[in-house]
Amino acid sequence: MFSIIAHEELAPRVHRMRVRAPVVAAKAKPGQFIILIIDEKGERVPFTLSGWDEDAGLVDFVYIEVGKTTRRLAALKVGDEVAHFVGPLGRPAEIGRFGNVVAVVSGYGIAAMVPVLRSMKEQGNHVTTILQTPDRERLFGEADLQLFSDRIIPVIEPNGEEVTGSVTRSLRRLLANSAREPIHRVVAMASLCIMRVVSEITRPFAVKTMVHLTPLMVDGTGMCGACRLSVNGNNRFACVHGPEFDAHAVDGWEVMMARRCTYADESVLQQGFQCRGCSQW
């Protein structure tokens, strides 16, 4: 059993949970995720690590209430336990000394990108962060991002349907300016739609763009193939070969997004996940 050490609401339906899991904390790297199961009848659900403390044996993640499991999570209190907790899964995010890095975040990516940006800063990169949120009320995590970003561009877009449009405008502006201030790398942890659009915008500029993909997962260790997607024509499993991928090598975004929504109902219409024009709707 894994006990809950802290649990707070960061914004409406957005929560941070801290769990005692020393084995996970000992190996955690930026961009990796865990899978938890609340009880023996529960589903295995993945969450990206947003922080950890190896010495204390604690790990953090931020989740958005979208469906059954996340609603049940939200009802748990400090001192309660979850039955299973496994990780860190997936490959860590690629960190290096790239120069100017642009991060695009929305939803839980606002928190889960923090460890990535911390390492990026440690490597001496200049970090610009585009932070998308639907309204002021649901803005969270800005302070943490501030610590590891040289500049934050908030995109507060009241009309959910325009979300991808406004992120696009900010990114385009940066790219248009890239003769004076070159962009060496873009990294995105946001809704699949935003990441897809981001990858299409950076493609003509040949700016290497990494995206954190979230297809459906079951085991998270490469056994079930639920998380498979096509990368450069090869089948890749997001849980072991990803979840970070070179966006320009990912083919078949449409298929991946459809697969991701196999079990989605209206609940998919969550913060940062407004999927206008999605093939499933």
């Binding site: 193939g225 697969r259 196999t262």
Partner: peptide, 18 residues
């Protein structure tokens, strides 16, 4: 990779283990 093309492992894991 179309939707609802499963590997047996996923189909059986969902059905039996889960």
């Amino acid at each position: 990779n179309l939707n609802l093309v499963y590997s047996a492992n996923e189909f059986l894991t969902r059905t039996n283990l889960m």
